[in-house]
Computed example of a mutant assay.
Amino acid sequence: MKVVAIGTVADVAKLVGENRAIVALGLKDLAKSTNPGLRALMEVAGCGDGKGMTAYDLGFRLGPRINAAGRMDAARAVVELFDTRDRDEARRLAVHLDARNEERKAVQRQIFDLAVAELAEGKASTHVAVIAGEGWHRGVIGIAASKIAERINRPCVVFSIDGELAHGSGRSIEAYHLLDGLTSCADLFEKFGGHSHAAGVTIRPDRIDQLRQRLNDHAASCLTEEDLEHSITIDMELQAEDLGYQLATELQSMEPFGAGNPRPVFATRGLRSLSEPLVMKGQHLKLRLAGASNKPWEAVWWNCVGDGEQTPEVKGGIELAYTLETNIWNNELRIQLNVQDLQCKN
């Protein structure tokens, strides 16, 4: 049940019905795991002994380290990890998978930066981003396409050109049926397939420009300007004084969160920054915020550095959209605000 739970979340299956029950049972069972490989992987991924783990840990800590092995051509290590009964060997393999995941993130970031630079040069059109590069790692172009689509709020297809063929991976936004768009260009492909929000294609490189034009024409006939605007649905507005462990505990009863059961998004006005934001790993910002009562809260804004987002000034006013999460550090329960968006009132 533990491995099924990891697979269910990592595959972004909707956490409703029996999937929800499977993941809930698997999470409870992880702390009881006796498999040396799974134990070692949890430790390397920062999940400790498995107590208090959530679907977030499966999707963003364990899942990526397992998936990275296949993406970076080392899938055998995962089989060996779960098969070994030797703790030292399990630790070695878990560290190896962790390193492959770091390698995957570095390659993904490189492709993302190159693709964004191409977008900035105006090589991608208005409604769908179609981006190509020589020799980009095929194992990570799907993740790159997903990140780009999320950033620009437009469908995106990323191609890795390898000789006479280009292999592409596409991701879409809620308002656009990607497979319908690709089907309208079917005569251009060597092969293609997928569904409404994700697809894979193979095409000759000299046809990519034609695909870009035709796919944009199709999307333009389906999408409105409103569809292309970034938006966040706020579930409830809270006062800073409403935040606390009671609310966090009540939210925990709604776990597991994930696809089909998203974590509630809250908004709070009248916050202010208590200190200079701390840049983490060159990508994320850690903020210390407080409301009228001066009680400090830790907030993390993931992957915002370099995206042109506003940076809060010390003592500057802030309106914050966020999700509320708990984590355990040194056996202490902590509350963390995960920033979805903010507006500075300096």
Score class of each variant (00 low, 15 high):
V44T: 05
L114Q: 14
A120I: 00
L97T: 10
L165H: 00
I66C: 09
L119Y: 12
L41Q: 07
I143Q: 13
D86H: 08
A132D: 06
G142Y: 03
G142A: 03
L97S: 14
I143D: 11
S160T: 02
V78I: 09
E164K: 07
V157C: 02
I111F: 01
V107F: 09
N153L: 07
C156E: 04
M42I: 05
H167K: 06
R65W: 11
I161E: 04
E164Y: 03
M72Y: 12
V130S: 07
I66R: 12
R71C: 11
K105Q: 15
Q108T: 14
I66M: 13
V116I: 11
T84Y: 03
K105T: 06
V140N: 09
R138K: 13
D98F: 13
L81I: 10
I143H: 05
I141R: 02
R92D: 10
A129D: 10
G46Q: 15
I143R: 08
L97V: 12
R76M: 11
R87F: 09
A74N: 14
L119Q: 11
M42R: 05
V79I: 12
G135D: 06
L97N: 14
V158N: 01
N101F: 04
A144L: 02
A120R: 12
A106D: 07
A69S: 12
A74Q: 14
V116E: 13
M72V: 14
E80W: 09
H167G: 00
A55T: 12
G50E: 07
V107C: 09
G168K: 01
W136L: 03
E150D: 11
M53W: 08
L93Y: 12
N153H: 07
L41N: 04
R100H: 14
D86R: 08
G135A: 05
A94Q: 07
